[in-house]
Simulated scan of single mutants.
Amino acid sequence: MSTETTQTAQTQPTTDEDLLIDFQNVSFVRGGKTLVGPVDWQVELDERWVVVGPNGAGKTTLIRMASAQEFPSSGVAFVLGEQLGKTDMRDLRAAIGITSSAIAQRVPDDEKVGDLVVSAGYAIMGRWREEYEGMDYEQALEVLEQVGAMHLIDRTWGTLSDGERKRVLVARAVMTNPELLILDEPAAGMDLGGREDLIGYLGDLALDPDAPAIVMITHHLEEIPFGFTHAMLLDEGSVVAQGLIEDVLTSENVSKAYHQPIEVTYDDGRYFARRARKGRGGAHRA
C-alpha cells in the first residue's frame, strides 16, 4: 500500500459500532444562519434521550439530521453506522421509526387507521394494491392496542383529533421494529388523560431492554416518560448541557436555556418545571 493510500485511509472518519447516532462537530446552516451546532452527540443502543429547549433552539433541525432527513452543513454525522452523505438515505430511513407533524401532513384524509399502521412495514404512505400477511395485521392490532388506539382502527385519518393522530403515528413508528425510534413532540395536542396514557406506554417501552434506542423532542418536562436516561438542552442552536438526565435537567440548566428562573422538581420518576416565584429573570423568548 502506498504512503498516499495509507494517509487517506487514516483520515477517513470512523464511528464506534455501538453508536446509533454519532455526531462529530456537526453544524447545520441555512440562509447564512447557523440553526444547530457545532454539536458532538453520541447515542447508544440502550439509551433513551429527550431533547428540550425553547422555540427556535434547533431541536427539530437536530432531529431531522438524526432521522436521515437532512445532511449536516459541516462536521461528520453517522446514523446507524452509516455516514450521512456517503450512503443511501432511503435505506437508513427504513430502519428508523419516526413521528412528526411533517409525516402527519402527508397522510391522506381518507386513509384508514389500520391501513396506515400496517403499511409502515413497507415504508409507504397511502395503501393502494399491496397484499399483507396475517402476521402484519396481528402486529398492527397489537401496537394500536398498546398505544390506546385500537378503537380507531376503522376510522379514517381525516376524522381523527390531534391527540388521536398522535397515538396512531406512534403505533406506525413502532410497527416496523425500528433500530432507532424518534418522537417529535408525541404528546402535543393530547388531553390530560390521553397524554398520561401515552407517557405510560412510552415509559414501559423505555424500560424494555429489547426496545430500540429512543430520542424524543418535547417542550414540557412533564411529558418526559419514566425510564429515560439522557437529556440534551438546546438554546439558539447551541448545547446548554447534555448527558445523564439527572445531571442535565436541573433548575440551573433549564433556567439558563429559557432565560428565566425555572424551578425543576422530580417526583416518582417524572420531572416537573415552573417559573420560580422568587427572584427575577429575563422574559421568555417567543
Results as ranks from 00 to 15, higher is better:
R167C: 03
V168S: 02
V170P: 04
A171C: 01
R172P: 07
M175G: 13
M175Q: 14
N177I: 01
N177C: 07
P178K: 03
P178F: 04
E179N: 15
L181G: 09
I182A: 01
L183N: 03
D184G: 04
D184A: 09
E185D: 07
E185G: 03
A187S: 08
A187Q: 02
A188I: 12
A188G: 03
G189N: 13
M190T: 07
M190E: 08
D191E: 11
G193M: 08
G193S: 14
G194W: 04
L198D: 03
L198G: 03
I199S: 01
Y201D: 02
L202S: 00
G203L: 09
D204Q: 15
L207Y: 06
P209T: 08
P212Q: 06
A213N: 08
V215Y: 05
V215N: 08
M216R: 02
H220I: 13
E223D: 11
E223V: 03
P225V: 03
G227V: 01
T229C: 06
H230E: 05
A231W: 11
L234Y: 00
G237I: 04
S238M: 04
V239R: 03
A241H: 03
A241K: 02
A241P: 01
Q242T: 12
Q242V: 05
G243E: 02
I245E: 07
D247S: 13
V248T: 05
V248M: 08
L249S: 07
L249M: 13
T250G: 05
S251V: 11
E252V: 09
V254G: 06
S255K: 10
Y258S: 00
H259S: 14
Q260R: 15
Q260I: 10
E263M: 11
E263P: 00
V264L: 00
T265E: 09
D267E: 14
D268S: 14
D268K: 14
G269R: 09
Y271Q: 10
F272V: 03
A273T: 07
R275T: 15
A276Q: 14
A276S: 15
K278G: 04
K278L: 07
G279P: 11
R280F: 12
